[in-house]
Amino acid sequence: MRADAALKPHWFYILLALADDDRHGLAIARDVQALSDGAVRLWPATLYGSLDELRARRWIEELEEHPAQESERRRYYRITRIGRAVLTDEADRLGRLARLARMRARTGDAR
C-alpha cells in the first residue's frame, strides 16, 4: 500500500475503535460516533459490510470465544497485526498532512 493513498474514513475509524479493545459491531458503531464527536455515524450495511471486507483482507479477525460475561450471540472482532500496521501508516500519513497544512496555513497568515 502506498503511503499517500487515503484509507476509507470509516475503515480508519473501525480500525481505530478496535485498536484499544476487542469489540462487537454495535460497540464499534458507538465508539466510532464518540471518536468522531458524533460526525461519523455508521449505518448497518456499511458497518457490517466493512467488517466483512476488513476480515477478508485479514486486517481484523473474529474471536473464536466470547469475552467473559458478554452476550453469547454477539460476534467480537479483534484487530490483527496487519491491521495495526495499516492504522499506523494511515495515522502517520494524516500526521504528515496535518503538519503540512499547519505550515502552509501559517505562511498564508504572514502574507
Binding site: H24, G25, L26, A29, R30, R41, L42, W43, P44, A45, L47, Y48, G49, L51, D52, R73, R74, R75
Partner: peptide
Amino acid sequence: LAPRTLRDQHGADMEELFAER
C-alpha cells in the same frame, strides 16, 4: 435490499444497530 450474504451473516445485528439509530 441488502445482499443476501450480509443479511444472513449480520441480519440480527443490523436490526439492533438500526433500532438504536
